[in-house]
Write a protein that binds this DNA or RNA. Structure first.
Length: 110
DNA sequence: GCAATGACGCTCT
DNA sequence: CAGAGCGCCATTG
């Protein structure tokens, strides 16, 4: 988490990573949800931004973060997208027909 | 420093 | 249900 923080401005990044790290296995959280828990409600964009800056191999379970529609928010054909889906399914998260997750069932509640 | 950009989300057509 | 519009703001070029 710290290595990632190098050079970043606000404490927000750390908060974000911390919150994400709290998401339990087999559960997912939306960007907006993370934003709220991280103390920057209404600024979901920043969550995505923070993640985009997150290097691969980080200890942060970024794959458990999805958009409010229950789907992946990266380019569908990108490697990252496939990896994310694979990781989630490996944890038991089920993707529906339209590549969306049933938030009512898998959304993490804190 | 200014303008464009983006792993978002909610409301209104 | 698909689109468009609008808010939000750190990071980039």
């Amino acid at each position: 988490v710290d290595e990632v923080m190098a050079g970043k401005s606000t404490v927000t990044y750390e908060r974000i990573y911390l919150v994400i790290s709290d998401i339990p296995r087999g559960r997912v959280a939306t960007y907006g949800q993370i934003a709220e828990l991280a103390g920057i409600a209404g600024q979901a964009r920043r969550i995505g931004y923070a993640l985009s800056a997150l290097p691969q191999g980080s200890v942060v379970p970024w794959h458990r973060v999805i958009n409010a529609s229950g789907g992946i928010s990266v380019r569908p054909r990108s490697k990252a997208a496939k990896l994310q889906r694979r990781l989630l399914e490996a944890e038991g998260v089920v993707f529906g027909k339209d590549a969306r997750i049933n938030l009512a069932r898998f959304r993490w509640r804190s």
